[in-house]
C-alpha cells in the first residue's frame, strides 16, 4: 500500500516577523512512525498544530488521510488524536471524568463512555489512580493519561508532540513501548522530539527541522550515512618495540593498504612514554575490519584497542544544522546510542 497518512507541501506559518514554519514538506507513509526532530523553537509544534487543524497555515497545503486540513477540518479531526503539552486533559477533573467527558463528546453514551474509560485506564496502567486528583499525578502518569484521552476513538493517525520530554528514562521506555504497540495495531504515529536517540529508536523515517525548514529527511541510517561512512578506530601504543618501526606508522601502513585511506592520528596522551595514538579511517564495508586485523597480525603490530563506530544522530544534527540539539537532558541520554564493536587487543 502506498497510501500516505500525511502529505504536506510548502507549509508556512508566520507569527509577526517570525517565520516559525517556512516551507515544510512532509510525506508520512501510513502505518509508520515518523519522527520530526529538531531543537526547541525549530517549528515542530507549529507544524503539528497546522496538521492537526489547531492552526491555519499561512501558506502551502496539507492533506491528512486524504482530507484537506483547511477545507475539511472536521473530517480530519475525526481521524486524528492529538497529544502534546498544549492538548492535554483537564486538571480539575479525575482521570475517569476526563475520559468520560471526551468519550461523551465523541458521541458515546454515558454508559459506553464509562466502560471505555475503565478499559483505557486499565490499558495504560492507571486504574489505581482513576479517582485521584490529577495534581497528584507524576509526569509519566499525566503523559499516559493524555495519550489515553487521544485514543478513545482509536484514531488511525496520532500526533505526539514531545511525548517524553521531561520523563525519566524508565517512564520514557514505557512510552516508547506504547508507541510501538500502537503502530503494531495499525496506527500511524507522527511524533516530534528533541531527543536524537528517541527518533533513532522509534521512527521509521525522520525529518530534521531547523529554523522552520526541513534540513534533512530519511531513515535514521540514511541520515547517518549522509554525514559519513562508518569509521574504524585503532589504538596503538607510542613505545617503539626493539628493532621495529613505531607502531603508529606500521598500523597506518596496514590501514592504508586495506582501506586505501590515510589514517587520522589522535594522540591520546597518557603518562610519559605510556601514551597511545588513535588512528581513524573511514570504512566502506565492515568486512574490512577482519582484513585490517589480519594485516596487523602479519605485520606484527600490537594494538591496544579497536572500535567500529557509526556517527550518532548527534553528529548528524551538528553536521546538518551547524549546532547541537539544545536543551538535552543529560539524564535521558542513552549511552548506547552509538553502536560500537569493541575488540580487546
Amino acid at each position: 500500500m502506498t497510501t500516505n497518512a500525511i502529505e504536506a507541501t510548502g507549509l508556512v506559518k508566520v507569527f509577526g516577523r517570525n517565520r516559525a514554519v517556512d516551507g515544510v514538506d512532509l510525506t508520512v507513509p501510513t502505518g509508520s512512525v515518523y519522527g520530526v526532530l529538531g531543537p526547541n523553537g525549530a517549528g515542530k509544534t507549529t507544524t503539528i498544530k497546522m496538521l492537526a487543524t489547531l492552526l491555519r497555515p499561512d501558506g502551502g497545503s496539507a492533506r491528512v488521510l486524504g482530507h484537506d486540513v483547511v477545507r475539511e477540518p472536521q473530517a480530519v479531526r475525526a481521524l486524528i488524536g492529538v497529544t502534546g503539552q498544549y492538548a492535554s486533559v483537564d486538571e480539575d477533573m479525575s482521570a475517569t471524568e476526563n475520559l468520560v467527558l471526551f468519550g461523551r463528546l465523541l458521541g458515546l453514551s454515558t454508559r459506553a463512555a464509562r466502560t471505555k474509560a475503565v478499559e483505557l485506564l486499565e490499558e495504560f496502567g492507571l486504574s489505581d489512580a482513576a479517582r485521584r486528583p490529577l495534581k497528584q499525578f507524576s509526569g509519566g502518569m499525566r503523559r499516559r493519561l493524555d495519550l489515553a484521552a487521544s485514543l478513545i476513538a482509536r484514531p488511525p493517525l496520532i500526533f505526539l508532540d514531545e511525548p517524553t520530554t521531561g520523563l525519566d528514562p524508565r517512564t520514557r521506555n514505557q512510552m516508547w513501548d506504547t508507541v510501538r504497540r500502537l503502530v503494531a495495531e495499525g496506527s500511524t504515529v507522527l511524533l516530534t522530539t528533541q531527543y536524537l536517540d528517541e527518533a533513532d529508536q522509534l521512527a521509521d523515517r525522520i525529518a530534521v527541522i531547523d529554523r522552520g525548514q526541513v534540513v534533512a529527511e530519511g531513515t535514521a541510517d540514511d541520515l547517518k550515512r549522509s554525514v559519513g561512512a562508518q569509521a574504524l578506530q585503532v589504538t596503538v601504543p607510542t613505545t617503539t618495540p626493539p628493532g621495529g618501526a613505531p607502531p603508529a606508522d606500521a598500523a597506518a601502513r596496514a590501514l592504508a593498504a586495506v582501506t586505501g585511506h590515510d589514517a587520522a592520528r589522535t594522540a591520546l596522551g597518557g603518562p610519559d612514554a605510556d601514551g597511545s595514538v588513535r588512528l581513524t579511517v573511514p570504512l566502506e564495508s565492515p568486512d574490512h575490519v577482519a582484513d585490517v586485523l589480519l594485516r596487523l597480525r602479519e605485520d606484527r603490530v600490537d594494538i591496544l584497542g579497536l572500535s567500529l563506530s557509526r556517527p550518532s544522530l548527534d553528529e548528524v544534527f551538528l553536521t546538518l544544522t551547524g549546532h547541537t540539539a539544545e536543551q538535552q537532558d543529560p539524564e535521558a541520554e542513552n549511552p548506547n546510542e552509538t553502536p560500537k564493536v569493541q575488540v580487546p587487543a
Binding site: T2, T3, L65, G66, G107, D222, L320
Partner: peptide, 26 residues
C-alpha cells in the same frame, strides 16, 4: 549547509480517502 533530502518522494501516491467519518450530526 545543504538540505539533504535523501529520498525521492514516494511515486505518485494517490491519497485514497480513509473511511469517511460519520457526519457531525447537526
Amino acid at each position: 549547509m545543504t538540505a539533504a533530502t535523501l529520498t525521492t518522494a514516494p511515486a505518485a501516491p494517490s491519497p485514497t480517502s480513509a473511511p469517511v467519518p460519520p457526519p457531525a450530526g447537526g
